[in-house]
Write a protein that binds this DNA or RNA. Structure first.
Lengths: 186, 186
DNA sequence: GTCTATAAACGGATAGAC
DNA sequence: GTCTATCCGTTTATAGAC
């Protein structure tokens, strides 16, 4: 792995663990085993490096989510696959957590990939929910976009519950609750 | 307002806006219009002051939530009142956001009031959901604790969606989606 | 109770040598 | 490309005067 790659990976980890405000260039360099000069040679500064890291994480998240969606089966089955996919629950969502970071929200450049990713996720789920309505799995009275927002929110909020309690159990409970509400009246 | 009170209020605001990691004693003092010596006279340090601030915010949050729950009406109506209550959506949840703060999660003392508050919220909602089942509003197959977790998660995650997009619309969509799933088949 | 002084480490870079 | 030196402000206090 190149120095540049190591710096990006090190930044990705630190952003996930400590957020943008809690991450210093020094900590990034140490974890990447790179010197000061090295970092400033490859990147313009903390923000520039963070942007590269966030974009890579966003890309990875889309790829992972897409796998759940492409699994086939009913709309309910695909939503269930997404909700139940393996997660490192206590670490939280590497993209979602950035929304609580004041410096990320204050910067259009840093917020853009976060916004795009979450938006993409909602669109994917809205498409699936719409199919579910067409197939008669979900009531016609439901709004696919709203259901998609509820699904994404349940996941993001599930991380909050889990981290508050220090256990993944609350995340799982929230997911099961949502699935029971979505379940086609078989 | 006493100096001590101003320090706590100033800390509450900063914790809400910037989190624990992003808040410095200096910023607290300036906003409270208090000197260095003043702050260290009244409090043991940053963590001690943060604890006082978090406890006050937690207390306030319980009181606000309790109002929605005590409004009377059906279980669905009380849940709806809670979900639709006025919120400063783009500011996020002053308690929930702390779960993304590494130093808060690392400290049992700081995490305790956060955990307690979210736990209390889940219990309240679980009680209401249970009543709803007894009254035939909700299907007997639903698990009240799971539904409660889903409700709290939708709210917490709604803040994430809203802050990502820079608009409260996504929060509202998530709430409407959840309400449509909960709606008694009238 | 509040003020000012002091301090060692960190934050986020820039400059120039190699 | 990487290294070391330097820089100015901030962080999180402690000490002691008033």
């Amino acid at each position: 792995m190149s120095t540049s790659d190591r710096l990006i990976e090190s930044t990705r980890e630190l952003l996930w663990e400590r957020g943008y405000v809690g991450t210093s260039p020094k900590a990034i360099q140490q974890r990447a085993d790179a010197g000061q000069g090295s970092m400033y040679h490859h990147f313009g500064g903390k923000q520039d490096l963070a942007l590269a890291a966030i974009e890579r994480t966003a890309q990875e998240m889309r790829a992972t989510a897409a796998k759940s969606f492409d699994g086939g089966g009913s709309a309910y089955a695909r939503i269930e696959a997404y909700l139940r996919r393996e997660r490192d629950v206590l670490r939280g969502c590497p993209i979602g957590r950035l929304t609580m970071d004041p410096d990320v929200i204050a910067s259009d450049a840093l917020r853009a990939p976060v916004d795009d990713t979450i938006d993409w996720l909602r669109e994917q789920l809205a498409g699936i929910a719409e199919e579910g309505k067409e197939q008669g799995e979900f009531a016609p009275s439901l709004d696919a976009e709203e259901i998609a927002a509820t699904i994404v929110a349940t996941v993001q909020g599930g991380y909050v519950l889990a981290r508050a309690s220090g256990s993944p159990a609350a995340f799982d409970a929230g997911v099961r609750g949502l699935l029971s509400l979505l379940a086609p009246a078989a």
